[in-house]
Design a protein around this nucleic acid. Structure first.
Lengths: 350, 350
DNA sequence: ATGAAAGCGCTAACAG
DNA sequence: CTGTTAGCGCTTTCAT
């Protein structure tokens, strides 16, 4: 039952240093340092005396000073493309967990897709002398190369770089899976929708998977981008609904879930029913895709495994156990069949 | 058309220091330091010479060393409750933006609701001597108080602490709005569903708003928690569908969108239609709530404004321009009417 | 206007 | 086993 008003104190102006602890315990700084780092060569009696001083003073070692002298940081920088895409926030969490398991903290930069902020973020990470950098952005590879100039170990996640370690998925296998699923269901008139902000190498791979899958099975095959809510095919923009009706499209494969969700929205706002009129497949399997009302059929990426591998590679580069040519690790993907895909009703457009 | 294999280089083992730059430019470290910090008292000729050395060496000042000597950091720590709740990831982004506008970088900790990881994160932030800490968790206040012991300025966001600066919203006004909306639509049999992980003060405020709104208008008023997919009312667990049918509930107010989404899922999986059979209202207005297929009626929080104020307050504490008693800033909320609420169909259960 | 020197708080040899 | 010492890379007086 303490009086709330009395609980507030201004924050302490100056944190106690290792010297203060030493003085209070009547020992030297080194002894305190030994206690902190758990060195075995400290007399139990002293150890408890020092520990007491630490507790009463509320001492915390200054990580900055430690890292400065050790010339190594226990912080990993993570730059993420856009947090509002759930795939990236899931990835950020997974990376943080994986890093934490290996004793690293994470310093996060969110570029929101703006190259300026991205480079700014990298600069900041570099100035903080992070031990390494994890890039989970889409398409930052080339920009990052210039800035980083390999001044610090880094690994990319789901990007298309070839000059740096990379952990990614079998992109083309994924869209192939998606397209085959549609073909198997009986769809013959397909469109593939990408997104201009997707990194080119990934974009190409996913497109290829779709084309391969569509090649044998489909009569009509359109590919383009979803831009400002419209489908851009070649150099024309179409309303999604109009495009589907005019070309009698029955299946749409999207480059990712975020795009698929947008497609879903437009389709239904324009009076088309999913999956009755059109089937839609995504890529990523973000949590929203699993909601009953969304129930998006999609290609799942193993986010925790990707994160784990990325951190493992980075740690290898950091401690020098991994050296030489850039490594590429590719994970498998799997199709999650949900409610946005069904056999086409050819009769519908009669 | 460079050969990809040749582009890879191992990362440099040792970053150049201010001393290297000084040597290469034939000046002293101080001059280099002056150039870096844009001190006015440097001869133009020297300035360019130093700048050249910096560029060719790819020199970046060591932020650790700088912060150590300046005894102040340009990094703010942010600890976030659970990233997988979109409200928090939106908040994290907003905080990062707001901090960045004021020249601060952000070091992020994600506690995933686990108190241990949360405290661990705070410890790490403290060791890194962050300039201040932003807590966007739910219910970490009391735990944090012990650990922090006010060793560093901090501001809470949407928590219920009374011993520290806080920026939050008019919680009870929000649920009141939601409940009145339901009442206005004609609902008389209401339940309120909270979540055990919500911070107690916030939880109480939102509950109060609901109770106030329901007091005059409703015949049946139930309140409880959504736990493991079941509604816990008093000390009994009920399947959501069964509860709604048995007590002829027509309106559900949820403590947040994340809970509302879950409620929606269960309801519809148990054969109830929303909003035909039951209306559902959330709180937060996360992006998913706005999707056409979800279209959740909810109470919107002004996330960017909350973030901006939190950072402003924190900066005030950091630079000393703000002192004294804990400040509380409360923002208004607003109802966003969407598709999960409609007038009740009393006849339905006849 | 520029350089020399004294630390920031810590660790890591090395003496005692 | 404990204390002394020499820096880590930088900023910041203070002389020059």
């Amino acid at each position: 039952m303490s009086a709330p008003r009395l609980r507030h104190r201004a924050h302490a102006q100056k944190a106690p240093t290792i010297f203060d602890v030493a003085a209070r315990a009547g020992v030297s700084k080194s002894t305190v340092s030994n206690v902190i780092r758990g060195a075995p060569t400290v007399a139990p009696e002293l150890r408890t005396r020092v520990q007491e001083a630490i507790d009463t003073l509320g001492y915390r070692p200054n990580g900055l000073a430690r890292q400065l002298v050790q010339a190594r940081s226990t912080t990993i920088g993570v730059v993420v493309g856009d947090f509002r895409n759930q795939f990236f926030s899931e990835m950020a969490v997974a990376l943080e967990r994986a890093a934490s398991r290996r004793g690293y903290g994470v310093m996060l930069c969110n570029s929101e897709g703006e190259p300026d902020r991205e480079l700014e973020g990298i600069e900041r990470l570099l100035e903080h002398r992070v031990a390494g950098i994890l890039m989970a952005t889409s398409g930052a590879g080339d920009r990052a190369e210039k800035v980083l100039d390999m001044r610090c170990p880094m690994v990319f996640i789901c990007d298309g770089v070839d000059w740096c370690d990379l952990v990614s998925v079998e992109d083309s296998a994924g869209t192939l899976l998606a397209t085959e699923h549609l073909a198997m269901l009986g769809h013959r008139r397909l469109v593939y929708l990408s997104n201009p902000s997707i990194e080119p190498v990934t974009a190409r791979a996913r497109l290829e998977g779709f084309c391969t899958g569509a090649a044998g099975a489909a009569e009509v095959v359109l590919t383009g981008d979803l831009e400002a809510g419209k489908a851009r095919i070649g150099n024309k923009s179409h309303d999604l609904g109009a495009l589907v009706r005019r070309r009698r499209i029955t299946g749409i494969v999207c480059v990712n879930d975020s795009t698929a969700l947008e497609v879903l929205d437009h389709l239904e706002r324009e009076g088309l029913a999913v999956p009755e009129d059109v089937s839609v497949v995504g890529f990523d399997d973000i949590p929203t895709a699993g909601l009953a009302r969304i129930s998006l059929t999609t290609v799942a990426q193993p986010v925790p495994a990707l994160a784990e591998d990325a951190v493992r590679l980075l740690c290898g580069r950091i401690d020098g156990s991994l050296k030489g040519e850039p490594k590429v690790v590719r994970h498998q993907v799997s199709l999650v069949e949900r409610g946005t895909t069904a056999p086409p009703k050819g009769a519908h457009y009669a």
